[in-house]
Nucleic acid binder design. Structure first.
Lengths: 117, 117
DNA sequence: GCCTAATATGACAATAGTCTAATATGACGA
DNA sequence: TCGTCATATTAGACTATTGTCATATTAGGC
């Protein structure tokens, strides 16, 4: 396996870690810094164990770091460069707003086809 | 659903579209501009139909555009801002190289745990 | 040590993504 | 129109991710 392959696999894994709305939400909640798990979980409005699993996904990919303080566990984003990525994506989103809107509406419907062939 | 929710769902969908090494590869192959599907497919070294499905994923998310020219179909990246995102990610990758290495090695193995509790 | 609060993990059903093989579509030339 | 090339789609088996419920772990107060 070449190092190029490795970088591609790693990028894919990274994106996979971010490919769930709850996990995006978690990252947004951590923009202002460290927060206890409980606060994140209640903000997400999911079952405790489900939210905790989403935190685990981000932790296992080294996107979040956790440290214990007393009874609770404080989470934070390991590298703020992540927010640059999310911000670029927001710019992309607004620049393609009209397409995006129809994409969101069509999420569960048959998608646009390619030029036949 | 708030517009914040929509943005988060959209970001998650976007990341999901990029969450496969073959699709990252396709994007890298398109850095220098438009290329015919056949060229992409042979570079990927996958079954024709599998490669075509990966192209379809990127097309359906409006990340790629396709136009027919004669018998073949030319693909390109809709918005070069995408490459800024990939480049940021490469920087992130190199800055965390040691962690990344162990992550890649451990991909199919039990992952690091959180502070217990 | 026991209780409770906070958080993580495991089992398992449901769902979604991926791969392969087979088939369909469209363009072009004989 | 028929054959062929290039590409896309469909169907089905396999695999991975997700959500829920139940249970385990750790910390701290009593």
């Amino acid at each position: 396996m070449t190092s190029t392959d490795q970088l591609q696999i790693w990028k894919a894994e990274f994106f996979k870690a971010l490919s769930h709305p709850a996990r995006i939400r978690i990252l947004e909640l951590l923009r202002d810094g460290e927060r206890p798990a409980g606060e994140l979980l209640s903000a997400l409005g999911l079952e405790q164990s489900n939210g905790s699993q989403h935190l685990a996904v981000l932790r296992h990919r080294n996107i979040l770091v956790a440290r214990r303080e007393g009874a609770s566990v404080l989470y934070s984003v390991r590298d703020p460069m992540l927010f640059q990525i999310l911000d670029l994506l927001r710019t992309y989103f607004t620049e393609h707003l009209s397409e995006v809107r129809s994409l969101l509406e069509a999420l569960d419907q048959p998608a646009e086809m390619a030029p036949k062939g």
